[in-house]
């Protein structure tokens, strides 16, 4: 059961501006049935003043998708195109008195449809085409890197889970979660903020060599080997020299073209996470 505000409930119960404007001056279509929500926005625009005289919507989706779409049409009626172009998903959510975190993507859908409609008014197609450098990150919901970065920026998102709530990316099979994390890292590094992604990790005590080796072994047993074994592979600890860890791959990992990636993104990443961020892992053949 979602905790919807009274305003969301009201806009779902009695949605304003349902329908389609005949011969509209602008159309914006986003989403699909597979994604779970879709919106078709039509606008009547006064060509002289650039004002939106009328806005109508048709939405496939849950209560918050319908409410967000309806709220959007109410908000932009009377605005000029320039004013409407500044409407963000946060504005839509605020208009409704807030949306559950998991439903923020409904407000994003509203904003996107509006953007497509404005672009359409200016001559672009009614459906958003992929532009230039855009790259699909989440294949389940066809979410591009540009959309994710924008959501991170405009909503100050810090975790993969938050990105999923706002864009749906990562909400299907979950295979793109590492890529989303990478986008988050890149974005926040660029921003030169000092925000640490999760919580402040308390400073770890300096370990003796024996403690460190024991911890490496324990981490490999718990975090690394089960994952490799699930795919028919395995890994063995060979030696530890200060922060250099030497390991040997076994089973199908031997000669696997992805072994290099596994070494860095699984073995080294886990050891960095649990033991020391300065650890480097090398494969012994």
């Amino acid at each position: 059961m979602w905790d919807y505000t009274d305003k969301v409930k009201e806009f779902f119960k009695n949605p304003r501006n349902v329908g389609e404007i005949e011969n509209p001056d602008a159309i914006g279509e986003v989403g699909s049935i597979i994604c779970g929500d879709a919106l078709r926005l039509t606008l009547r625009i006064d060509k002289k003043t650039g004002k939106i005289i009328d806005a109508k919507f048709k939405t496939f989706g849950c209560a918050s998708a319908i409410a967000s779409s309806s709220a959007l049409t109410e908000m932009i009626k009377g605005m000029t195109i320039e004013e409407a172009a500044k409407v963000t998903n946060q504005d839509i959510a605020n208009y409704l008195g807030g949306l559950p975190e998991e439903k923020m993507h409904c407000s994003v859908m509203g904003m996107e449809a509006l953007e497509v409609a404005i672009a359409n008014y200016r001559g672009a197609p009614v459906k958003k085409a992929m532009v230039g450098e855009e790259r699909i990150i989440c294949k389940c919901f066809s979410v591009t890197d540009q959309k994710i970065i924008r959501a991170i920026k405009e909503n100050n998102l810090k975790t993969v889970e938050e990105v999923t709530h706002y864009t749906k990316a990562g909400g299907g099979c979950g295979k793109c979660k590492p890529e989303i994390q990478k986008l988050l890292n890149e974005f926040w590094e660029k921003e030169e903020t000092k925000i640490i992604q999760h919580k402040e990790v308390p400073q770890k005590k300096k370990l003796t060599n024996l403690q460190k080796i024991a911890l490496i072994q324990e981490t490999m047993e718990r975090e690394i080997r089960p994952q490799l074994k699930a795919d028919g592979g395995d890994v063995e600890l060979i030696d530890v020299d200060r922060n250099k860890v030497y390991v040997k791959f076994l089973g199908v990992c031997l000669g696997c073209p992805a072994a290099g990636v596994t070494l860095k993104e699984l073995v080294e990443a886990k050891l960095k996470e649990f033991i020391d961020k300065d650890i480097e892992v090398e494969e012994v053949k």
Partner: peptide
């Protein structure tokens, strides 16, 4: 052509309790 959560909430307004397999629910 329609989504399960919306159907459930409309049913809920009428005092009918059911469930759905849609993504939103």
């Amino acid at each position: 052509f329609i989504e399960g959560e919306s159907i459930l909430l409309k049913l809920d307004e009428k005092g009918v309790a059911a469930s759905s397999g849609s993504a939103c629910t």
